[in-house]
Amino acid sequence: MAVTIKDIAKRANVATSTVSRVIQDSPKISEATKARVRREMKALGYEPNYSAQSLANRMTQSLGIIMPEADVAIFQNPFFLESIRGISDLTNEKNYTMALVTGKTDEELLSRVKTMRRANRVDGFIVLYSKPDDPIVDFLHNEKIAYTVIGKPQQYVSETTHVDNDNYQAGKDVVCYLMELGHKHIAYVGADLERTVHKERVRGYRQALEEAGMTVNPHYIFGSEFTDDDISELFRLQPPPTAIVVGDDMIAMSLQRALHRIGIRMPEACSLISFNNLILADMMNPPLTSVDIDIFKLGYQAAKSLIEKIQDPEEVTKHIIIPHRIVERASCSRIEE
């Protein structure tokens, strides 16, 4: 005769509802009770039927992962791969699956999110980015669909569970790091103000310079789209920058190539520091000093928070900050007066 949850409950001296919650890994059940129930499940050779349980709970045991508007660069960016790896690690623990949601425009993305939700293909969504006036976040919030955001949301901030770094502080920290090396003329390349993460980093950069009594030179600040001529013009300014803060490692890779083409040596003529600490940072020449934002943990915590919200709609809203640290490599050097 097949083993049932009633058999497990009797052996563990708990209610059948408790066994069900242990199978769902509910946060409402203590770790000690979970361990006792799982011991009995193992002793009796019980294998949970997740498909039947999902049907009974009207859940899909699946999460939708919403990418930014998709182009080739998005899929080549290791940030998204690493955050998805963190999500995958947690979903495997909880016996959930993932479904990527992509689109070339906001409208296409929104249409696919609506289709997935109305067809009951997923229980909730993780938004892998944050930007102002996002129609996808508007839809998720207004329809009361469970979701979490990686990054600081620009809508419904107090009501939205999100996982982020303190990007404002990180922006200040990199400037302070460069000033400790003696740099006074510090530019910023990659100021993509459409994305909240870059907006916050630029805000921190500006604040650190102002607190040090330095003027923020608007000609020192570039977006993520630049040419060799733009970078040459930057170094023709008086005084030219001796260091550059870069929006992220992918932009830094392009900037490093541009500096090489126009004959600016790193770090002798210009130091470079960036954000994200992707694997490619260690492979650049010279290796890139970068801020490690623990991308894996961003994804892991976003998935954990979402599943907790799915299992308990009354779960409190969380604002989780993942610590960052500067990883020093050879792209920055001390400057002598």
Rank of each mutant, 00 (worst) to 15 (best):
T4H: 08
K6M: 08
I8C: 06
I23D: 03
D25A: 13
D25L: 12
K28E: 15
E31S: 14
R39E: 15
R39Q: 15
E40W: 15
K42I: 11
Q53L: 15
S54Q: 11
A56G: 11
N57L: 15
S62T: 14
D71Q: 01
N77V: 05
F80I: 03
F80L: 03
R85M: 13
R85H: 14
I87E: 07
S88M: 13
V101A: 02
T105R: 06
E107W: 00
S111F: 10
S111Y: 09
R112V: 07
V113L: 00
T115D: 08
S130L: 01
I136Y: 02
I150M: 04
P153K: 04
V157W: 12
S158F: 12
T161E: 00
T161P: 03
D166E: 02
Q169Y: 05
A170V: 02
A170S: 09
D173S: 09
L178E: 09
H183S: 06
H185E: 12
Y188I: 06
V189C: 07
V189Y: 05
A191M: 03
A191I: 00
T196N: 00
E200A: 02
R206K: 14
E210K: 14
E210D: 04
G213E: 02
Y220T: 02
F222T: 04
D228Q: 10
D229C: 04
D230S: 03
E233H: 15
E233F: 12
E233W: 12
L234Y: 06
P240I: 04
P241N: 08
I244H: 07
I251L: 05
L255C: 01
R261A: 07
L272C: 09
S274E: 02
A281M: 10
D282C: 11
N285D: 14
P286Y: 11
L288Y: 11
S290L: 12
D292R: 11
Y300M: 09
A302N: 07
K304W: 13
L306G: 01
Q311C: 09
P313Y: 09
T317H: 11
K318R: 14
H324E: 05
R325G: 06
R325K: 15
R329C: 10
